[in-house]
Design a protein around this nucleic acid. Structure first.
Length: 869
RNA sequence: GGGGCUGUGGCGCAGUUGGCAGCGCGGCGAGCUUACACCUCGUAGGUCGUCGGUUCGAAUCCGGCCAGCCCCA
């Protein structure tokens, strides 16, 4: 009658536990070798396109858990579109990370006692390329471990030849349009890296410092200023007060003596002074403070530079040659000696800017630098979002975007480094300036500007430079604008706004991406930021090794609510690993029992079959909707719940009975169908385990390009869902009884089932199987009787039942039912409620009341039937 | 100083337009029931930060307060 299960089981060669390491590397290499991730702009133009450019990781970096999240999300999007039949392109690559890379190589040289200046510029740059070839870009190999379905044939680097061409092209265009200029401004300067930094390369951190109040002038002209940077007073060229401040009105326009220097400096009135801070008077050092620089410009003040590029004091005998941090106490001591110190607050907490790459305290410095005039570009970047051409997801994040682009300062793009795109400007013998485009040669003898461009300048071109711009390539034609940009909200300003500005500018107003999908930061299980010093850093490669790439991805995606931070923990990775193992074993069970996907679904379905197929349709629709909306956490949750709690815990259990009778063949087909669709839905999230299982189940080559499932309305069966829900309540209730009575889960118990006309009668076998209830023999006497879901289960507990436990249970349920009745009655007795609440809500409450009343009747009868204790 | 976010069972999070508080992990109890102990079954645990308002009805809307976090200056 039934197929010989033993024989089929022998055909199934799957271990009882899923071992990711056995399959992941093998599958990935096959995917790449088969060209499944390769995009072809010429292929079937009728198909829609879907493209993503990867936020290029730093060439010096390795895969951290933040990348793992970012990449997992992109991979889900790309893999789903691929299955939906889109021509998909996911471009991989790296950025050259000017300062970081130069620092790495300089550090290496330093070990040999060599500086970059010893080598000279050309040899040093050569050396960096060599470093890149040997030890750069480790992350690319690590991306394979995670399963990134990128098109490796299109790997790009922000410093390679095509990208260099793009940089030269756009620089020339911006220059010719007057959007790039050179000017002497105060910029952020790193005295260790010896280069300018843009605003966003400076990290502000609270530090303990000091606030020293110094008396300038004397007698009638006395005025006290407070500062955290006493050493800069050597470069003061004014004292500023608010124009409406009566305390100082009489001093405005006069001069006061600047201590230690013997100079006299003016007192000026400026709106930007906060009269409520300190004494309401501030010292003005235009050469060493950005705010003071502005005040200086407004009042035509001279600018006195007191430090060199390394932060060493260059003026005033006793201080000359001191580092800025040595000079500070020295200056304070000298002032104290002169009786100039009025007050000292120590420690004084205040925000200090640090170099993002080396953590050195940034020194504002006046110098000649190149800038991008951002106003018109930023306006366009803002408008693209305001007009809805580019959608920021989640939408709440748009406020932060606008706050940034609408208040952007001109962007300092020159860096005093050797590693980077050299500024394509040449100077002639008579001070002529020439910007040369990609195919232009400067006149012989002219010298090129020594600076290089900010790395972000080239990464801002990424969405189109990777597609071949400035040529009008088929790639650009087909894949620009890219479909979505996936990145953390922390670099919305760093990078996204810049790509928007340059994309709109270079591509004649066409935006670089249609959607900006933002995710949060990965944090530990207590919401703490991961940091090496805290010791709570998760290494994704460690997780991949121990739990598998799929489990790593699932853990991250399961926590990925739009825009929200993603907490992760070891236990959750284990849970994800367990989930993968559950899928493995469910499929293993199915295969051992001959499940398959051949042919149509059976004509005749049992209620269990109809139920799981119906649920499957709901799940398909739900998951599809979640993924479309970037709701990765919800998609994972839905799939996890369906696979584990519905397919495994109920359908597989019910199928065991069906596989033993004439329904076996139909059941094999339904099992196959459910797993087929489930594995397809899960594939973008957990590609490896699903590929391995699905190819075993179907015999097909790969799931990577299999069709994405669509829900079929015809398979939705509300009646089956209702009936199985009833069955589940019945089974759960009897299990509770068994547990209360101390019956072991596996223990067989004789029971008689009286269905009294319930449609559940058709599922007697399934119910008996789930509950381990055997058919009673002759002379059976029940020791307990349970009325549930219209069915009476009478069972022989093989001994006296625990009346006390049963009474306790029934009384608990009774109390809950009574509370329910009371609450619902009160509601339904409220005339306002009946008058104002919607019909459906009222009806729902009536149903609840009826249900609760029926429960009370039943429970009271059961209690009455209990023998006295 | 400006702007933003968060506060729901021990921990981490969901809760769409207001209409029975859910999930995962962990805890407790029982079990190796021929897919899986990376498992199964059962179970405990929350007046949704706080005070007030709107409403027939508030975790959900409005306001004050408290606590914590982030970004920008």
């Amino acid at each position: 009658m039934t197929q010989p299960i033993e024989r089929q089981a022998a055909d199934v060669d799957l271990p009882t536990q899923y071992r990711p390491a056995d399959v992941e590397g093998k599958l990935y290499e096959r995917w790449v070798a088969d060209g499944l991730f390769a995009a072809d702009p010429a292929r079937d133009p009728s198909r829609p396109s879907f493209s993503i450019v990867i936020p290029p990781p730093n060439v010096t970096g390795s895969l951290h858990v933040g990348h793992a999240l970012d990449h997992s999300i992109q991979d889900v999007l790309v893999r789903r579109r691929r299955m939906q039949g889109y021509e998909t392109l996911w471009v991989p690559g790296m950025d050259h990370a000017g300062i970081a890379t130069q620092n790495v190589v300089e550090r290496e040289l330093a070990k040999q006692g060599v500086s970059r200046h010893d080598l000279g510029r050309a040899a040093f740059v050569e050396r960096v390329w060599q470093w890149k070839a040997e030890s750069g870009g480790r992350i690319l190999g690590q991306m394979r471990r995670l399963g990134d379905s990128v098109d490796w044939s299109r790997e790009a680097f922000t410093m390679d030849e095509p990208r260099a061409r793009a940089v030269r092209t756009i620089f020339k265009r911006l220059f010719d349009d007057g959007l790039i200029y050179r000017a002497e401004r105060i910029i952020n300067w790193c005295p260790r890296c010896l280069t300018a930094l843009s605003d966003i390369e400076v990290e502000h951190a609270e530090r303990e410092g000091e606030l020293v109040s110094i008396r300038y002038g004397s007698g009638d002209t006395e005025i006290v200023v407070a500062t955290t940077r006493a050493e800069t007073m050597l470069g003061d060229t004014a004292v500023a007060v608010h124009p409406d401040d009566d305390r100082y009105r009489h001093l405005v326009g006069t001069e006061v003596e600047l201590p230690l220097t013997g100079r006299r400096i003016p007192v000026v009135a400026d709106e930007h002074v906060d009269p409520s801070f300190g004494t309401g008077a501030v010292k003005v050092t235009p050469a060493h403070d950005p705010n003071d620089f502005e005040i200086g410009r407004r009042h035509s003040l001279p600018s006195v530079t007191v430090m060199d590029e390394r932060g060493v004091i260059t003026v005033h005998g006793p201080f000359q040659g001191l580092d800025r941090f040595e000079a500070r106490p020295a200056v304070v001591a000298a002032l104290r000696q002169e009786g100039r110190i009025v007050k000292e607050v120590r420690p004084y907490e205040h925000a200090v800017g640090h170099c993002q790459r080396c953590s050195t305290v940034v020194e504002p410095r006046v110098s000649l630098q190149w800038f991008v005039k951002v106003a018109p570009l930023a306006k366009a970047a803002g408008d693209a979002v305001r007009d809805g051409r580019v959608r920021i997801h989640p939408p709440e994040m748009a406020a932060r975007y606008f706050a940034w682009v609408d208040n952007m300062h001109d962007w300092c793009i020159s860096r005093q480094l050797w590693w980077g795109h050299r500024i394509p400007v040449w100077y002639g013998p008579d001070g002529e300036v020439l910007c040369a485009g990609p195919d232009e040669e400067p006149p012989a003898g002219w010298t090129q500007d020594g600076d290089v461009l900010d790395t972000w300048f080239s990464s801002a071109l990424w969405p189109f430079s990777t597609l071949g711009w400035p040529e009008r390539t088929p790639e650009l034609e087909r894949f620009y604008p890219t479909s979505v940009l996936v990145t953390g909200y922390d670099i919305l300003f760093f990078w996204v706004a810049r790509m928007m500005m340059f994309g709109l500018y270079a591509m004649d107003g066409v935006e670089p991406f249609k959607v900006i999908a933002l995710h949060g930061m990965v944090r530990d299980q207590h919401g703490k930021k991961m940091s090496k010093s805290f010791g709570n850093v998760v290494d994704p490669l460690d997780w991949i090794e121990r739990y598998g790439a799929d489990a790593t991805r699932f853990t991250l995606l399961r926590g990925a609510n739009p825009g929200g931070d993603v907490p992760v923990a070891e236990e959750w990775a284990q849970g994800s690993r367990n989930f993968c193992n559950k899928l493995w074993n469910a499929t293993r069970f199915a295969l051992m029992n001959g499940a398959h996907v051949r042919g149509d679904l059976p004509e005749r379905l049992t209620t269990a079959d109809a139920w799981i197929l119906s649920r499957l349709q709901n799940v398909i629709a739900e998951v599809d909707g979640h993924l479309e909306a970037f709701e990765f956490a919800k998609a994972c949750e839905t799939l996890y719940h369906f696979a584990w709690d519905e397919v495994c815990d109920w359908y597989v259990e019910l199928s065991k009975v069906q596989l033993n009778d004439e329904r076996a063949e139909a059941t094999r087909r339904v099992l196959g169908e459910v797993l087929d669709k489930l594995l397809r839905l899960l594939h973008p999230i957990v590609p490896f385990v699903t590929e391995e299982l699905w190819t075993s189940l179907t015999g097909a080559d790969t799931l990577v390009t299999a069709a994405w499932p669509a829900a079929e309305q015809a398979l939705v069966d509300k009646d089956a869902e209702t009936l199985v829900e009833s069955l589940q309540r019945l089974v759960t209730e009897v299990r509770r009884f068994r547990s209360d009575q101390g019956l072991k889960p596996g223990q067989r118990v004789a029971a008689a089932l009286d269905f009294a006309g319930s449609p559940l009668a058709a599922h007697e076998e399934g119910i008996r199987s789930l509950l381990r209830l055997t058919v009673p023999a002759e002379g059976f006497t029940a020791t307990a009787s349970l009325p549930v879901e219209g069915v009476t289960v009478r069972l022989d507990t093989a001994g006296a039942i625990d009346v006390a436990a049963e009474r306790k249970r029934l009384e608990k349920d009774l109390a809950a039912a009574r509370k329910e009745v009371e609450q619902t009655r009160r509601k339904l007795g409220n005339a306002d409620f009946l008058a104002k609440a919607p019909e459906a809500v009222v009806a729902k409450n009536r149903d609840r009341l009826a249900q609760a009343e029926a429960d009370i009747t039943r429970l009271e009868a059961q209690l009455a039937a209990l023998p006295a204790a």
